[in-house]
Design a protein around this nucleic acid. Structure first.
Lengths: 297, 297
DNA sequence: AGTCATCTATCAGAAAATCAGATGGTATCT
DNA sequence: AGATACCATCTGATTTTCTGATAGATGACT
């Protein structure tokens, strides 16, 4: 004989319920069936799993250890069945999500943890594209769902939904001229501004442009590195400043003018024509239901 | 019916051998048995694993994915059986090894990789004790095997075996007075020496003492940090210097006297009276068979 | 101490699953 | 076209597993 899943099941049920009889009741089998199955398992493994001194069987040290192993084997069977079920339910086996770094990581991590619990069998690929355009990735089928900042013109094939607005902070290095005292709007124009090198052209690209001289940098993270060196000032979302390794060298100077949180709209995008499975739909709904840390949408 | 290990085995064998017939030959069963078992598995999972268009069955995408899962389940069964076998063979379930940092990590890692392959079911705990004495850990039963540098007096209950000698290098900071030019033995005595704070007293503790003024530090790694600051000079094994994060700031000055590699003997120790299982014996033999990077023992 | 409920191991027969071998049909190669 | 190797399916035989019964043992309770 060879070790059988039924044997392992009888073993685990016995360990969990505390007696062969109870295990029989749980598994809807006769007590004798459980008893012999566990006994056979012990013969196959060549080791005693339960000590049968008293009225109830009690795990031996070996039984204790092997119980954990048995649970693993049974879990893997359940997992296999789950994978098969997700195939028949036409759940995606793989889902690619492209998220702009503007989206705060903390709720993102919570969301994906939740996703993993709901769809344990779906392989998730997360992209944080730098220079590529999120909407282009979605358009080309390289990503199933995208989260990006607003682009005025989106192709008609792309569906979208506004998630909310992320407020930006004005930040500069602590040795930068702007770091001392409150800032005038006109003053801003005289210093170099660092902006993310947005990919597609359009009016949105220019909306935040304030200074005469602008450098284009591929990521907010890199921008902070440059800001720290005193190369210029920038508009960067809160959460990126918070989590920056160089945040001690950064200054958020007070402003002498209003309406100065420069909100940026975050959009969720997908391809209208590509059919989306249950996992993609679930993720879209959850994205839409979440509120961004800033103003609600 | 529920998914059975036999079914999975038939499935995997079919996928590996390319046909039901071949799988039957491999598993020493009739072709019909394999065929029906795979068919039953497909019914249970509710999905087609093989496409049966041509002469031979060929995996569907779902089959491809589930094949990996099936292999995992079968592997876990083998693992369980292996754990049980190691119980009956009275293999230790846990082995604690205390290694002095003098022992080079590279061969150590290779050795333990090998160990993991031979004894996959043994939990290994590795200690790199700082201030505690390795022989004391072994004596107290907190470690099964120890590798330490030679202590003249070892308790009688401790068995030991000399593994080899580790040569030490004289090292100092690049701004230290000794860093310029070849070094005289008398010169050494005038500068502060940093030594590892060895735990037990004994003549071995004093053997390497050269300077008048000595600081005792708990680890060679920390010693290098201090040496880098120019606090003193030290004798440190090669591999620790190599792997130090501060090695650019260190200098190994030339010496104007001979016999200056200060070899330190490494011993393997164990408790004679405590019975050792197969894993401990294997590890002892392999330790003994290895040559230290320096002179052979 | 005696009673009772509940547990375990084991047995025999019934029920179920699995297997081998035979058969017919089909794809592939020569 | 013929030969070969393969697959699906059927049937009866074999093996395994299950149930239900029985006897002995343990622990709780009076």
């Amino acid at each position: 004989m060879t070790v059988t899943l039924d044997q392992l099941q009888a073993f685990v049920a016995t360990a969990e319920s505390g007696s062969f009889s109870a295990a029989g009741r749980v598994l809807r089998k006769a007590q004798s069936a459980i008893s012999t199955q566990v006994s056979n398992l012990e013969d196959d493994l060549g080791i005693e799993l339960f000590s049968r001194q008293g009225r109830n069987p009690v795990l031996t040290p070996a039984g204790e250890r092997l119980l954990a192993e048995a649970r693993v084997v049974l879990d893997r069977r359940e997992h296999l069945i789950g994978v098969a079920a997700s195939f028949t339910a036409h759940v995606e086996h793989r889902l690619v999500v492209a998220v702009d770094e503007l989206y705060p990581e903390k709720p993102l991590a919570a969301l994906f943890a939740d996703f993993a619990a709901h769809f344990p069998h779906v392989e998730l690929e997360l992209l944080f594209p730098m220079m590529e355009d999120v909407s282009r990735l979605v358009l080309d089928g390289k990503a199933d769902i995208g989260v990006m900042w607003r682009q005025e013109i989106l192709p008609a094939e792309i569906g979208f939904h506004t998630l909310g607005w992320v407020p930006l902070q004005l930040v500069c290095g602590k040795n930068h001229p702007l770091a001392n005292g409150a800032i005038d709007f006109e003053e801003l124009k005289r210093h170099r501004q660092l902006m993310v090198a947005v990919r597609s052209e359009g009016p949105e690209k220019q909306r935040l442009r304030t200074a005469a001289e602008v450098w284009w940098v591929e990521s907010h993270w890199v921008i902070l590195q440059l800001v720290r060196q005193g190369i210029g000032w920038a508009l960067v979302p809160d959460h990126i400043i918070e989590n920056s390794p160089v945040r001690e060298d950064l200054v958020i100077p007070p402003l002498r003018f209003d309406g100065a949180d420069w909100p940026v709209a975050l959009e969720m995008v997908w391809h209208k024509q590509r059919p989306s499975g249950p996992a993609a739909r679930w993720l879209r709904e959850r994205f839409a239901a979440m509120r961004i840390s800033g103003l609600p949408g």
